[in-house]
């Protein structure tokens, strides 16, 4: 079941036939074990909205918007919110444990392997150095993808700059910057304040959509069917 059809029809609601705690745990466990390559939110959407029909697309987007203005990772927060809707607190706990368990076990294994391999010399060091450089490129790309969608006015660029200057130049605690610049930005967009709409990077987004479409057409084998619009969140 692809997520293209997910918004249509009448998806089962939580009230209809709530899945068992075990079913919730297993569903999130399988997302937690297969969501390689970042963009867990896209995997969540195709599983929860598409395959299981536990929430409809509108609810999914609404829940995602709650996650994005709260601390915590989107993937774990979404697991909690959907689990809570299906089965209350125990559903939320089952979903959270399920989505974290596979990656957590892999990282524990990686920590043990890293400790063992590290003493063996510089081939492993070289590989990890390469992986780290790649990770910088990856997180920068993902942050910019998100930024082009989030930043809509020139004022947003000022808030971004203030945040970076606070953390990187003045070495202020992230919490202080979050409170200071966050309060300023919320006040700027206060009810009746500055307009919340804008199209600062609309052209950039169109351009990137175009290059991605052209490149995947010419490659002709990128048929993952994942919706990238909600994915790619670091």
């Amino acid at each position: 079941m692809s997520d293209i059809t997910a918004g249509e029809g009448a998806p089962a609601t939580a009230q209809d036939a709530p899945p068992s705690i075990l079913a919730i745990f297993l569903a999130f466990l399988s997302i937690g074990a297969t969501s390689f390559g970042g963009g867990v939110v896209a995997y969540l959407r195709s599983a929860l909205v598409g395959r299981h029909r536990w929430v409809d697309d509108e609810t999914f987007i609404e829940l995602l918007s709650i996650c994005q203005s709260l601390p915590g990772l989107n993937a774990s927060n979404m697991a909690i919110l959907v689990g809570d809707r299906l089965r209350g607190t125990s559903g939320a706990a089952a979903a959270l444990v399920g989505i974290c368990l596979p990656g957590g076990l892999m990282m524990v294994a990686a920590a043990i392997a890293y400790g063992a391999a590290h003493s063996q010399g510089n081939v492993v060091d070289g590989m990890l150095h390469g992986v780290s450089a790649a990770a910088v490129g990856m997180v920068l790309a993902v942050s910019l993808q998100l930024g082009f969608k989030t930043l809509k006015n020139y004022a947003d660029l000022v808030f971004v700059a203030l945040t970076i200057i606070g953390v990187e130049v003045f070495h202020l605690s992230v919490l202080v910057v979050l409170a200071g610049v966050g309060a300023l930005a919320i006040f700027w967009y206060r009810p009746g304040g500055a307009s919340k709409d804008g199209a600062l990077f609309a052209g950039t987004l169109r351009f990137l959509d175009g290059t991605a479409a052209r490149l995947s057409r010419s490659k002709g084998k990128d048929k993952t069917g994942k919706d990238k619009k909600t994915g790619g969140h670091p």
Binding site: S65, Q68, S69, V139, L140, S143, L146, G147, T150, L151, A155, D156, L157, F159, V160, A161, L162, T163, I164, V167, E168, V174, V177, L178, V181, G182, L184, A185, I186, F187, W188, Y189, R190, P191, G193, K196, P234
Partner: peptide, 17 residues
Amino acid sequence: ASIQRGLGPVSIGLLLA
């Protein structure tokens, strides 16, 4: 809406930092 809209650019700044 103000909170959601205001925290957006700050979170992008934190990511870039």
